[in-house]
Lab assay of single mutants.
Amino acid sequence: MSRESDVEAQQSHGSSACSQPHGSVTQSQGSSSQSQGISSSSTSTMPNSSQSSHSSSGTLSSLETVSTQELYSIPEDQEPEDQEPEEPTPAPWARLWALQDGFANLECVNDNYWFGRDKSCEYCFDEPLLKRTDKYRTYSKKHFRIFREVGPKNSYIAYIEDHSGNGTFVNTELVGKGKRRPLNNNSEIALSLSRNKVFVFFDLTVDDQSVYPKALRDEYIMSKTLGSGACGEVKLAFERKTCKKVAIKIISKRKFAIGSAREADPALNVETEIEILKKLNHPCIIKIKNFFDAEDYYIVLELMEGGELFDKVVGNKRLKEATCKLYFYQMLLAVQYLHENGIIHRDLKPENVLLSSQEEDCLIKITDFGHSKILGETSLMRTLCGTPTYLAPEVLVSVGTAGYNRAVDCWSLGVILFICLSGYPPFSEHRTQVSLKDQITSGKYNFIPEVWAEVSEKALDLVKKLLVVDPKARFTTEEALRHPWLQDEDMKRKFQDLLSEENESTALPQVL
């Protein structure tokens, strides 16, 4: 008996699950189920560990084997000379395990699969056993689809999209007709009724959600790893209520002995410091949205989908001078704002400069500016000194954290500008005749005249004003913003236009 009217009423009120309206889709043409990776026989039982391990490696599972009696060998002398080797079968990115008779397991190899009674669906509900069930008529011709799209860092995100009359449910929550939600590992998919569980979705590319604290899981769906560094790992996640993407940084307390840091400095109150950081608001710094204190720290951040500045300059790639100017102007505005709010970044580098898009002209935002507030000064500097390429001379020669101030950030900005303009770092371990530390503390950077011949004198002058060993003589952010190279009204107008595109209400910060 159909429950279409009941569920449609529920759909009209929406769902609290991570779902959002989605535009129309072009329906895929039908194809045989076997060619799409559906096993030839149905099963109602969950797999054992041996079955799972075989399939996850990209080899055929026991459900897909063919009797050897149906095959015969071709003698080598009868092999056609022009026969080309077969292409290897792509490894599946996800697996659906059937929970009921009449449904088959599915190895997801393609990027898009339609499910329903219509014969054009890649996964067609046409098993005779299924057709005899009382629920068969409640399934729509095109009930739902599972697909994946390219996300940040060229990774993939799996989604389920509801197109049914009676509802598609993920972990008992209604997706909603015309809406989608991301699928995470071990999600249970039910059709027409929330208790009519048909599939379990296994994402073969992500970790299980159960490793994360419950308070975090209640608000966010964790997904793929976006990156990792000395101070922690960053994962893509989704807000459950809105389906908006965020980035979540995970900082290990054990790695940084944060408990010991608190004992050594009783004034170090991470929760208080995070609340201060959350109040920071500038178009060129990453917004801190939320914070969870569990076995590790979880910092929920605004997501930038254009990648890191590092990706644009790695491998001796240089940027156009006009692009360097647009990016560097924004970096200076961001660091100036942090300094005005009493925050020294201490870890400025291309990896911590994020881009809003893949376009050459785009907004940038500074991230990882609050680590000293979370990890403690000593722990952070011990970590950073392991990779000193961007560290100021006074940091390398000081004991502990004494003896330096916000000028350290201006040195790091000078190193970043040098790399963007030239395509190579000013200080490098590859210069074996002088140690990296000695290069930095003496201010002897690697200047290649033929490379810098293409760079304007004004740009080079600003680099020199920032890479000054004496912090008292080094340019401040205010002085850098007043430098002739940055007195470019076309560049500032472009920045204002980019801000307006992102948010019509965002105004250009005042600069002296």
Rank of each mutant, 00 (worst) to 15 (best):
K119W: 10
S40E: 06
G37Q: 11
N196V: 04
Y139P: 00
Q51M: 07
S50V: 11
V7A: 11
P92W: 12
L60C: 13
L60H: 07
D118Y: 12
C18A: 10
D118C: 13
S252E: 01
V175F: 06
I157W: 15
P88C: 00
T205R: 04
S61V: 03
D265N: 15
K179Q: 01
E76P: 05
I160E: 01
S5G: 15
K141N: 05
F202D: 03
E233D: 04
S73Y: 14
S228I: 05
N154Y: 14
S55G: 13
S32L: 09
C121E: 03
E233T: 13
C124F: 11
G151M: 00
S140I: 09
L226W: 11
V25D: 13
S164D: 01
L174K: 07
S33Q: 10
R95E: 01
D207A: 02
K224T: 01
F147V: 03
D6F: 00
T68E: 08
T172M: 12
S50T: 02
Q11M: 04
G227C: 12
S164R: 03
I146L: 04
R240K: 09
N171Y: 06
E219D: 10
S56I: 04
L174G: 13
K214S: 01
S73F: 13
G227V: 01
F169M: 08
S15C: 12
P90K: 06
C121Y: 01
W93L: 01
P182K: 06
V170W: 09
Y136V: 07
Y136F: 15
G102Q: 12
E127F: 06
F238N: 01
R262E: 02
R254S: 04
E81W: 14
S49P: 09
V150R: 07
G151C: 11
P88V: 07
C243T: 02
Q100S: 10
K224S: 02
D126T: 11
E107Q: 15
A247G: 06
D101L: 15
T205I: 10
R240T: 06
N185L: 13
P21Q: 09
G58P: 11
D101K: 10
N166W: 15
L71I: 15
K214F: 08
A261Q: 01
S5R: 14
R132S: 10
P88R: 09
E81N: 07
T59V: 05
N105I: 13
A94E: 02
A94R: 00
K131D: 06
E233Q: 14
N269I: 08
K131C: 10
H54F: 09
P47L: 12
D82E: 09
R254A: 03
V175T: 00
L106Q: 09
V109S: 03
M222E: 00
S120W: 14
D111Y: 12
Q34N: 08
Q27I: 10
R262G: 04
L268E: 12
S31A: 12
N196Q: 02
Y136Q: 03
Q36P: 09
S32G: 12
Q29V: 06
L191G: 06
V211R: 05
V270D: 07
Y220A: 08
E122K: 15
C108Q: 01
T242A: 05
K224R: 03
F238D: 15
D162H: 05
H22C: 12
S5A: 15
T26H: 07
T242E: 07
A264C: 07
S73D: 13
R148K: 14
T272C: 10
E263C: 14
R217F: 05
E64R: 04
S2D: 13
G116N: 00
A237S: 07
I38M: 11
D6P: 12
S39N: 15
H163G: 14
I160S: 01
Y136E: 01
R95K: 15
P75G: 15
A158P: 04
E239T: 11
V7R: 05
V246Y: 04
L236T: 07
D6H: 14
E84F: 11
E84G: 12
S44T: 12
N171T: 09
S42H: 12
N185A: 11
E81Y: 02
G178A: 14
A267D: 05
L60P: 07
A94F: 11
T68W: 13
S55N: 09
S120E: 13
G102E: 10
L174Q: 05
F201T: 00
S41N: 10
F147E: 00
Q27H: 09
G259L: 02
S53T: 05
S252D: 15
P128A: 05
Y212C: 08
S42T: 09
L236P: 05
Y72L: 14
G37C: 01
K119D: 10
L226Q: 03
E188P: 06
F202A: 07
R95V: 00
E79Q: 14
F256H: 09
P80F: 10
S15R: 13
S2L: 10
Q11Y: 15
K224A: 05
S57L: 10
G102A: 13
A257K: 00
L193V: 03
E161D: 15
Q20V: 13
N184K: 08
K141G: 07
G37T: 04
F201L: 11
R145P: 04
N48W: 11
E76Y: 12
Q78R: 11
F125W: 12
A190Y: 00
V150S: 14
S5H: 06
L96V: 13
F238A: 02
Q20R: 08
S39C: 15
Y72T: 10
S16C: 15
E173K: 10
T59A: 03
E8A: 12
E4Q: 14
G167R: 04
Y136A: 05
G227S: 15
K214P: 02
F199L: 03
S55R: 09
V150W: 01
T45W: 09
D126A: 14
A267F: 01
Q69S: 05
Q11L: 12
Y212D: 04
R195Y: 11
Q100V: 14
Y159I: 13
C243M: 09
F199P: 13
L204S: 13
P47R: 00
I160K: 02
I250L: 12
K131S: 07
Y113Q: 10
I250T: 01
P75L: 12
S260Q: 01
A237K: 00
A98S: 06
S120M: 08
T168A: 03
S41Y: 09
F202H: 01
C121P: 02
V66D: 12
D218Y: 06
T26S: 09
T68V: 00
K255W: 00
N184A: 06
V234P: 00
N171V: 01
S50P: 14
N154D: 01
Y212Q: 00
S164C: 03
I250D: 00
S28F: 14
S15Q: 13
K244R: 13
K255E: 04
K224E: 02
K245R: 09
L191H: 00
E271C: 13
L191I: 02
N269D: 08
V198P: 01
F201G: 02
L71Q: 03
R262W: 11
Q78C: 13
A261G: 00
G227D: 08
T133F: 13
W93D: 03
S2M: 07
R3N: 03
K214Q: 02
F103S: 12
S42V: 09
L268C: 07
H13G: 12
S44K: 04
S62D: 15
F199C: 08
R148T: 15
S67K: 08
S2K: 06
V25E: 10
P128R: 05
L106S: 14
V270M: 12
D101W: 13
S31L: 08
R262A: 11
K141L: 05
L183E: 13
R95Q: 05
Q11F: 14
A190M: 12
H22V: 06
C18T: 11
S39E: 07
P88F: 04
Y159F: 08
Y139H: 02
N185D: 06
N269M: 15
H54G: 12
W97V: 10
K197A: 10
P90L: 10
Y159W: 15
N154E: 02
D101F: 15
S5F: 01
S210C: 07
E271W: 11
S52T: 11
T26A: 07
A261N: 00
T168R: 02
E127G: 10
I38N: 06
T45S: 09
S12Q: 15
K135D: 04
L130P: 06
S62P: 04
A261Y: 15
P92N: 14
N166V: 03
N110T: 06
F238L: 08
Y136T: 03
D162R: 02
K131W: 09
F256Y: 13
S41F: 11
R180N: 00
S16V: 11
H13T: 10
S120G: 09
E76L: 13
G37D: 09
K241N: 14
G116F: 00
P266T: 02
N166I: 06
T272G: 10
Y220V: 07
S49Y: 12
Q20S: 07
S28A: 11
Q78Y: 13
P80G: 13
